[in-house]
Amino acid sequence: MINYLARRIAISIAILFAVSFAVYLIFAILPFDPAALTCGKSCNDPGIIEANRKRLGYDLPIWTQYVVFLKGLFLGRTFGEGAATIFCPAPSFGYSFQEHACVTNSILEALPVTLSLAIGALVLWLILGVGLGIVAARYRGRAADTGSTIFVLIGTSLPTFLTGLLLLVFVVVKWRILPYPSGNYTPLFENPLEWLNTMILPWITLAFAYAALYTRFVRNAVIETLSEDFIRTARAKGLSEKVVLRKHTLRAALAPLTTMAGLDFAGLLGGAILTEAVFNLPGLGRLSLGAVVDFDLPIIVATTILAATIVIFMNLLVDVLYAFIDPRVRVAA
């Protein structure tokens, strides 16, 4: 197990280096002058551009730039010299002239928003999806099953921006249960109620779509597992239906859910762009979207590397978890 883990971590790190380099190449490959981009779209003062080029190191060859970038990740990085010096501490992803801030700071501001959104939605959709899926499988072909099928159909057909807008129209505009989204984010530990007010609709929006997928998946997995030979064995032992379902069926049926939830969660941490846009949440999705629109290359590089890191880490976590769930994996590993 330890060997396996060490090997997996080594591979993950190698992949991360490859990804970061590939992403970094956009500075060299895109038909833009990164230095020109730093002073805005309508700016064409060659003096500022050249000064920025030197400050940000865009005058160096791409390889050197990448090495400097990597060094900054571990040691922090100083831009410019003299009075105009800006220091971005490690891990430094560079400096964004659009945001006028170290990229790491922009990301650290956006990350809690996206984390709140993703974790809340994950909890909600797991409870809803797994619960409904089990009920639908247990009462297959009856009213509860039909109800869940209708839920799945609606959930998978409605795009999140539509669900989000509908929620806004009814809950906020018509019924006035919640205030208008302010575009600000209140951290959980500052004002839990305010935090909840901001996050509840985005959670429901995201969870609705995912819960539908999970309901369908869990229903099918439970039904399939119930027809396994080892379930027949459990019944033949004289176990009650409750024990057969809870102990013998669910563990086997829900194991693949670990993979699914882990990867979906990782995907969301990269930024739920539509949901963040609809509810005006200052998360990673909005940050990346803004960066793409403004060609804010340092931010694009940083968010992409971050998203890749999260996906790679979640993959690793899922594999380790799986070994705990399924003894056959443990031995093979």
């Binding site: 030979d229 080892f230 027949r232 064995t233 459990a234 563990r251 086997a252 194991a255 399924d326």
Partner: peptide, 9 residues
């Protein structure tokens, strides 16, 4: 089938 009749977990 004793391969599939015992619970794998």
């Amino acid at each position: 089938d004793p391969m599939s009749s015992l619970h794998p977990y």
